[in-house]
Amino acid sequence: MTDDQVRVINVLLVEDDPGDVLMTREAFDEYLHNRLDVVTDGAAALSYLRNEPPYADAPRPDLILLDLNLPRRDGREVLAEVKADPDLAYIPVIVLTTSQAEEDVLRSYQLHANAYVTKPVDFEGFIEAIKQIDHFFVSVVQLPGGSAIS
């Protein structure tokens, strides 16, 4: 990939807090060049990932940003199901949550999360965290096939 080519990845944000969704969208719109899709609960996340209606045409995400405390199905359940499904298990999942509880960190890694990031409370810190996650997964690591080059 040359310097003038940017690898575009599909990111699925699973987040029920409208403020956090807005800040993440702003970070993507202003600083990042990746596609961001958002679902607001765990059941919708699993439907999206399995291409069930109304997400039949949803792209397979290259990266999942997952909150833990979600309605309908919590993030731990979503993480367990994603990592237990051979068609989804390869997708990196970053737990992005306000919880700093050691049991949440430990449980997330036991469920095979790829990283655990505590959301900074201030806007600048939040934007910087999203930019660092993006930089790592776009510029540093190699993701499994399917990422487009534009």
Rank of each mutant, 00 (worst) to 15 (best):
T40W: 05
P86F: 08
D3Y: 11
L96A: 02
L79I: 08
D134G: 06
P86C: 04
A84V: 11
P53D: 05
A43D: 14
G19Q: 12
L49W: 06
F123Q: 12
A129S: 15
V138I: 08
A56Y: 04
S139H: 15
V140C: 08
D3W: 11
V138N: 08
Y31C: 08
I149P: 00
E81N: 10
N51V: 06
K119E: 03
T97Q: 02
P71Q: 13
V141F: 00
V141C: 05
V14L: 02
K131E: 06
L96V: 09
V21T: 02
E15G: 05
L49T: 03
F137Q: 01
F126C: 02
D16P: 05
E77L: 05
I94H: 01
A27L: 07
V121M: 15
T2K: 14
R107L: 12
L22T: 13
L88E: 01
Y48R: 06
T97E: 01
Y90K: 13
P144Q: 10
V93A: 03
Q100I: 10
F136V: 13
T98H: 08
L70V: 05
V117Y: 09
L68S: 00
K119W: 06
S108G: 09
G146H: 06
G19E: 13
P144A: 09
Q5C: 00
P144W: 09
I91Q: 03
F123I: 12
D134L: 03
L65K: 05
D62E: 14
L36H: 06
Y48D: 05
V117W: 07
L70W: 01
P61E: 07
R73Q: 13
E102C: 01
I149K: 04
G42Q: 02
E102K: 14
D62H: 15
Q110C: 02
P86K: 10
S99R: 05
V140H: 10
Y90T: 13
L63C: 06
V117A: 06
D20Y: 14
E77P: 00
L143H: 11
